[in-house]
Design a protein around this nucleic acid. Structure first.
Lengths: 149, 149
DNA sequence: ATAATAAAAGATAATAAGGTCTTTTTATTT
DNA sequence: AAATAAAAAGACCTTATTATCTTTTATTAT
């Protein structure tokens, strides 16, 4: 459904929202290590997100990425929009070119409510708000394999 | 979520279930045209499905593919299992390597019920039964763009 | 038997996705 | 002012997926 690129971007941006600020910027390297995604690849993705004003950056020593109130109206949907295009979230589960209530694929009426609900989740809160919810609820963001002691 | 290969295989197999029988076998070409998938690619996929005894085939004039009672206990899950591997249906929506109730990603509790329900749909009926349901309910199987007159 | 038909098998090609590397630019610290 | 740190930009490489082509084998109809 989502490309790896979008997944990396979402997780990293949420991590950034939780751990960085204008006063405490974060380098790609640090985020990439925390989330366990390839850092040159993440650098590319963050470039796009800066361009789309979803996150902010400054160059040079003590520079890095962060999120401010000014990036505040942006949502996870905007991330997906900018990396994959939103249609990726809306595609028919079985690949039909036209799949809707009039012309439904065999699983349309199972998939449709799910898509609605995930879209709502990604669109109704700003990244900062969503990040807070995620942190408060103890949701995980890393691709790292857990140490199962 | 599913590869194109799996999607092609599912749609084509359901089409086959509805339109072919031991007495009325169908060639790859005919199915590929009906569903609008590349026929050499579909031929490969059907080879795999024959191997897995999900569909049947005979060579030569008037040969082709069909589904019998003997293929009857197989399900759409078996198709996915043989083309993509079932794990593809179970992967974390955001790509976490370990995502479960203990260690949930930000959308785990939205995605989980959906996965359960789609898995049930694909596992609880044989392909023949599922095909009948699909036909009775007027669900669509083709990738063709509709003529919007 | 022979010709024709269709699947099986395997090799190959094209495309897209994922990932890396190098150079340039900008800002900061000393 | 010089050195350094980090992002920006762009070229490049690798791998997986998707798709095609060619040859072989099996079956059936004539």
């Amino acid at each position: 459904m989502l490309s790896r690129a979008s997944k990396y971007a979402i997780l990293s941006t949420l991590y950034l929202a939780e751990h960085a600020s204008k006063e405490k910027k974060m380098s790609v390297k640090k985020i990439a290590d925390a989330i366990d995604v390839p850092s040159p690849f993440l650098a590319k993705l963050f470039q796009q997100l800066v361009h789309a004003k979803i996150i902010s950056s400054v160059k040079g020593p003590n520079g890095g990425f962060y999120i401010t109130k000014k990036n505040g109206d942006k949502t996870v949907c905007d991330i997906i929009e900018n990396i994959d295009g939103l249609h990726k979230l809306n595609e028919c589960f079985l690949g039909l070119n036209e799949c809707d209530g009039e012309n439904p694929c065999p699983v349309h009426f199972i998939v449709e409510p799910f898509k609605k609900s995930i879209l709502g989740k990604f669109r109704d809160k700003s990244i900062l708000e969503f990040s807070k919810e995620v942190a408060d609820n103890g949701r995980f963001l890393t691709l790292k394999h857990l140490d199962l002691d």
